[in-house]
Design a protein around this nucleic acid. Structure first.
Lengths: 192, 192
DNA sequence: CGGGTAACTTACTTACATGTAAGTTAGAAC
DNA sequence: GTTCTAACTTACATGTAAGTAAGTTACCCG
């Protein structure tokens, strides 16, 4: 039995996929260990409790999102930032039919640890805050067009993306692109 | 021990609440039986397998939705129909922080029976079809305003409502009304 | 009032999930 | 080459879920 070179990473990678397709309570250490050819207890060595694993996963999502947002903010115009966001949502779904982390955890909100819930909240806020800021900026410089409060629009968009990924899994077709396309048509009505 | 007068209904009522707050795999027969003061096996008498219970629940949702749509179609103007839909989403959430059935089941799609999945699909299609038809009708008679394909708009709206209920549970505030308000502002821009 | 059936309870099986404790092995470090 | 430790495995404990079979009770019907 050759040992895994980077067990922790491999465990998190599997857990991540399982989380995004079956939810937090929808997978077990067994699912992970059997896929990696190791034993259950090996996972407990790296993540003593499932809550520890979940916490690590959500923090990972946060970090990744933070980096993507930081990059977008510094390097892209408003429209390119929004395009990249829509594109990422569609691609993530296309790759493996995955849910967004927040959507995948909503049914588990009652059972997860406070710290996990907190990180999830941060993750959601990260996206909404960035969207709000970007939409506002775009409206000011004429890049995008929409009515009402920028934060309301941001919440509307992020909720729709989350829901679209779920609906897409149900009827086996990528509605993410379709919903994104609808938003783009509305936001970009007047060519910049 | 006084027997329950209408056990089947009471079981379904409890199951429905549990489903919409914890997901299909997030509750057990034990949760229901303890709440009703009966034994686990009593539920198995009415619903031999959990799949039978789930099936009954989803079909119930379908029936209820069909009736609401039929009533709306026959008695309400386009704007009143949409208002009623938005209102219902917000109220359902306000009442008990519940998820919409489709949203509550997305993480279980891999494990539920084909017939359940099928009914869920029907439920989702019911709403989207009605929304599509209503939006199209409204655009033709000037009640509502939006750009692009009516079905895309319908999917966008229903996905956003589903997502909004989930986000609302996460950050403990009713974002459903907010998102609905944003849609209304956009759809009703020109007073009819 | 006696019997049959619907609606249960009791008691059990099987399977699986989380988690712990103690023992084992591979490899780096000296 | 021995030793120390990280990274495991083996074995077990506990809890809980789904489901079944057989027995029990309440009640309506003739």
């Amino acid at each position: 039995m050759p040992r895994l070179s980077n067990a922790k990473e491999q465990i998190m990678d599997r857990a991540r996929r399982l989380l995004q397709s079956h939810g937090f309570e929808g997978f077990s250490y067994r699912d992970i260990s059997s896929q990696l050819g190791i034993k259950n207890a090996a996972i407990h060595y790296h993540f003593p409790t499932k809550s520890d694993l979940g916490q690590a996963l959500v923090e990972d999502f946060c970090e990744e999102t933070r980096q993507q947002i930081a990059f977008a903010r510094e390097n892209l115009t408003v429209r390119k930032q929004l395009d990249a966001y829509f594109e990422r949502m569609a691609q993530e779904f296309d790759r493996d039919n995955s849910l967004c982390p927040v959507g995948a955890m909503t049914t588990s909100l009652g059972t997860i640890s406070d710290s996990m819930r907190n990180s999830l909240n941060q993750l959601s806020a990260l996206v909404v805050d960035w969207l709000t800021e970007t939409l506002e900026k775009g409206r000011n410089n004429g890049d995008v067009e929409f009515s009402g409060d920028a934060r309301s629009k941001a919440i509307q968009i992020s909720a729709a993306m989350q829901g679209a990924r779920q609906l897409s899994r149900l009827n086996c077709s990528n509605q993410v692109e379709r919903v994104a396309g609808q938003f783009k048509e509305e936001l970009y009505k007047e060519p910049s």
